[in-house]
Simulated assay, not measured.
Amino acid sequence: MIRIKEAILHILDINTNEPIFSYAGLDTSERMMIEYIEAMVAKVEDSDSMKDGILEEDNPMTGLFKNCQSDFVEGTKALSEKFFNVTKLNPEIPPADLLIAHFELDEVPCLGVFKLNYSDSYTHFVSYEGDVLTNQIILNRAILPSQRQAIQEGLVVNLEQMAYHVIEKKHMIAELGEKVNYFTEMFLEDTPKPSLKENISIIKKAVQKTSKAFNDEEFQVLAETKEAIVTSMQEDNLIDNEKIAEALFGDNFAKKQKYFEQVEELGYVDRAPAEAAVAGPKYSKQKFRLDNGIEISIPLELYKDPDVVEFINNPDGTTSVIIKNIEKIKNLF
């Protein structure tokens, strides 16, 4: 349950020399505004790209966030100025507005910071030349995301514990000469834990390296990995790496050891929270792309059913896929 207390929009167009601060908040009694802010919060909280962390007391952002509780307008101006100073020297970071909201999430005071990147869109414009009214078409280069559109950067901070959830995208930083997660590294000055999506990617890479080391068939091991991950998310609401290793390698100590070495080296965070409602639909099918161009999508629960599908290793080293007992075929054109 979200109860919005106050919100404000600051314009941080890097094509201008200075940010354009708002000196008054948005009307949070309007249904449109309430729904828009709720949608922005959901884009952070319901994303499998969401990372979490906790700001220490000596982190400069801790004081800035707390100041927003006592003086919302001035506190958000300080936040926005810091953000603008990071982005204005790096032209590859898209220009945007910064929407900042103070709200309660399940009765916990929170602050949301959402970067609303601009996009181009055409609209009409009514002009007068003398007494002649003319309807024109103009290009507006500062269109904000709709409720349904994704955002690249967003943050929700628990103001009691300074715990935060964040989504972000790497961008080229001129002074560093490389792409970095500037939103956390330069704005928050903190390093969050890997997201659910990143943790799954780490597991995938570790399994690939392990299967290669032991000459296992990669596509089969990865299919079993996906099944083990989904099972862990559904049963435990987290990714339990011990259970995944057990499901994949059983009593094979050598494979387990190799796998655990790889996930540790890649930065995996064990027992990371994983909302099955978020991640489940993305991992409900086994998908394969064959080298002849054919793509196959098999529901997870049918993948191991020998009456439905069978993978056969041929003597010449190739693999055959047999799909069985089909009563009807529908073209999805």
Rank of each mutant, 00 (worst) to 15 (best):
A96C: 08
E30M: 14
P109L: 07
I138Y: 07
P94N: 11
C110E: 02
F65Q: 00
Y118T: 03
F84E: 02
E56V: 03
E38T: 09
I138F: 05
A42S: 09
G112T: 06
H124G: 10
A142L: 12
S80M: 04
L64A: 10
M50W: 00
M32Y: 00
Q69R: 12
Q136Y: 13
S119W: 15
L155S: 04
E81N: 14
H102T: 07
C68H: 04
L79C: 07
L159V: 06
L99Y: 05
E104T: 09
K115Y: 11
C68M: 06
G130K: 13
F83R: 04
T87W: 01
M50Y: 06
L116V: 02
C110G: 04
P91M: 12
L99D: 00
E30C: 15
I54R: 13
M32R: 13
L144I: 11
M40F: 12
L111T: 02
G53H: 08
I37E: 05
V73S: 11
P145G: 04
G112F: 06
L116F: 07
M61S: 14
Q136F: 12
K82G: 14
E92I: 15
N67V: 01
K77V: 02
R148K: 14
G112W: 09
I137H: 13
N158Q: 01
F125W: 06
M32G: 06
Y118A: 02
F103K: 00
L159G: 08
V44M: 04
S121C: 09
V86S: 04
N135D: 11
C110R: 00
C68D: 01
N140L: 05
L105E: 00
L55C: 01
P19M: 08
A96S: 07
L64V: 10
F21S: 07
P94R: 08
A78G: 13
H102L: 13
C110D: 07
E104F: 10
N135W: 12
K51C: 07
E38W: 15
L155V: 05
S121G: 15
N158F: 08
V132G: 07
V86W: 01
Q149I: 06
D46R: 11
D97A: 03
S70Y: 14
A24G: 13
E81D: 05
L155K: 03
N59K: 04
K51M: 06
V156D: 05
D52S: 15
P95Y: 00
V86H: 08
G63C: 13
S146G: 13
S146R: 10
S127A: 12
K77G: 09
I93E: 01
D71A: 11
N90T: 11
V44N: 02
Q136I: 11
G75P: 06
G53R: 03
V157M: 14
L79N: 02
D27G: 02
Q147R: 15
Q69D: 05
D120K: 14
F65T: 00
F65C: 01
L98E: 00
E35N: 15
